[in-house]
Amino acid sequence: MIDFGFDKLALIGAVALIVIGPERLPKVARTVGHLLGKAQRYVADVKAEVNRSIELEELKKMKTEFEDAARNVEQTVSQEVHAVSSDFDKAWSEATAGLSSSSGSPWEPSPPVYKPPRKNWRIKRSAVPQWYRQRHGVRSRVQSGAARVARFRPPRVSSKAGP
């Protein structure tokens, strides 16, 4: 940047006071200050944008490196699995070469038989805790309507006094 010392700033201020005049000098100084602030903010925004673009490029580079490493690991693992499975197939074929392939062989499992799931509502109802049923009004005992009315009816008071 341009290096301004105190003596140069004083000289510029004196010339501005003579040329512009003392009435308009504060307004002009305020306007210049606003313009300098806008210019500084613009420069800061440009710097931030450049930094973001540099960071984005670095992230893209790291992403490609990570993807390449993952691809290499995947290829290595698939090659090892293929080699082990081919070795296992060879060993299995050698071990089972002398056996006969009858359909009733004890080594061949029978296919599973479909069994529909049991639906027992008593088991489902017993899985709900008692406190939950009481709080939400689930009846635990069967009562007729008359029995429920009798249960919540206030007791009768007899008018006869006992001996």
Rank of each mutant, 00 (worst) to 15 (best):
A83K: 15
R41M: 05
Q134G: 04
H136Y: 13
G137L: 01
D87P: 00
L11K: 11
T31Q: 10
P154H: 01
A16K: 07
F88P: 00
Y114P: 14
R71G: 11
V142K: 08
A44M: 05
I2M: 08
V81A: 11
P117K: 08
S85F: 00
R24P: 00
A150L: 14
V43Q: 05
S158C: 03
F88L: 15
K124C: 02
A44K: 10
I18M: 03
A16Y: 03
K38R: 07
K60Y: 00
R125G: 11
S140R: 09
R41A: 12
S53T: 06
R71V: 09
V19R: 03
G145I: 10
L99M: 07
K47N: 12
P116C: 08
A147L: 09
Q75N: 13
T31D: 12
V32R: 09
S158Y: 12
F66A: 14
K115A: 14
A16V: 06
V43L: 04
R30Y: 11
T31C: 00
I18V: 06
V32F: 07
V81T: 09
E23K: 13
A83I: 07
V128L: 05
K160H: 13
L35R: 11
D45W: 01
I123G: 06
W131V: 03
G145C: 12
P26F: 05
A95H: 08
V157F: 06
E74H: 10
K119M: 05
W131R: 04
H82R: 15
R24E: 15
V28Q: 11
V73C: 07
V81K: 11
A150I: 03
D89Y: 07
R41L: 12
I20N: 09
G33R: 04
S78M: 13
R133H: 01
K119W: 10
E80D: 07
P116F: 07
L9W: 10
N120K: 00
E94T: 15
S100L: 04
R153M: 05
K119G: 00
V50C: 02
V77D: 02
W131N: 01
R133N: 14
G13C: 09
R135G: 00
P116R: 12
Y132C: 00
V43F: 02
F66W: 06
E23R: 09
L17H: 14
V142M: 05
A69V: 08
L99H: 04
Q75L: 13
G5Q: 08
S100M: 06
